[in-house]
Nucleic acid binder design. Sequence first.
DNA 1: CGGGCTTGGTTCAAGTTTGAAACAAACCTA
DNA 2: TAGGTTTGTTTCAAACTTGAACCAAGCCCG
Lengths: 171, 171
Amino acid sequence: MTTRWLSPEEQRAWRAYIASVALVEDALDRQLQQEAGMPHLYYSILATLSETPERRLRMTDLAEGLKITRSRLTYAVTRLEKDGLVRREDCRWDKRGSIATITGEGMRVLERAAPGHVETVRALLFDRLSPEQVGQLEEIFTAVAEGFQGEDAHATADDVPWRRRSGKSCS
Amino acid sequence: MTTRWLSPEEQRAWRAYIASVALVEDALDRQLQQEAGMPHLYYSILATLSETPERRLRMTDLAEGLKITRSRLTYAVTRLEKDGLVRREDCRWDKRGSIATITGEGMRVLERAAPGHVETVRALLFDRLSPEQVGQLEEIFTAVAEGFQGEDAHATADDVPWRRRSGKSCS
DNA sequence: CGGGCTTGGTTCAAGTTTGAAACAAACCTA
DNA sequence: TAGGTTTGTTTCAAACTTGAACCAAGCCCG
């Protein structure tokens, strides 16, 4: 089948998207590195843990929630643990499991960094959008994210190079 | 001033955005790694060079166009050069300058990879959006990107941690 | 001309990410 | 219940990114 290239409008959209994502991620990383001494992902790990009822999450669930690989998470948590912001505990029900908890110190760092982070997100993104656009943004990326949901359910997953096969949640 | 936290809707939009960006970038990297043996950025470097009238660009211009740091580009071009897909030439007008050109082999690799890449972009993004949403996407990220334009022009740039100071284009 | 500042690019070490391989514990199932 | 498969996590080496430091080459102005 002959390739359906991107239309001019799609191309413009794609380019604007790619450029913005790079700029926003960079800016976010830089801001958080400055104010909290960690990149955005690490902040997100703390944030995710802090929002959980027990302030703890199994590694796999955390990785899935953040859409990152397990090994990336392992590395990040090891660093955060070294910094005393996160602690690892054993899972009582499943001896294979490892549970990450945010420490008091972790909470303090997070709370100290949060305002600046939110300000930055606003400055970079929301301040530049109309209320309708915020709604559109949500719909667009909800749709995009949905495209990935249940990936491994399909038998075709193996054929498709861009799909990541991964395990199921089980916390 | 007390922090203006994100509204629930903003929060949903932000999360969907963050998750999708991670998923899309990963999928893109994986697909290109499979089919072209290089990550998305490297493909973009080739693509950018190929679209230029002379199929060449100064390092700084290339870096600015792709919104990446010079050092990142240096590394990437070194690799691509090692693979024979890009060549470095001296800039005659400015002896400091270095110009990256895409080689014939680079063009071939690019052309071979392009259809699969476009397919993937469609599958991940455009196939999931209505025509109106494509327009919205473009407007949203054009606005976001514009927020960064002329960064260094402002005297306040130094105060703001998320801004990257960089030189002007001069090709 | 002769510093001194700016610009274009690379280099280097430290940090991060990737993907495959290794392990161990849980889960079948015959 | 033994043996094989799946699941949860880590490990390891190779690749990549970051930011600061460095080196030239252009520029500017007295």
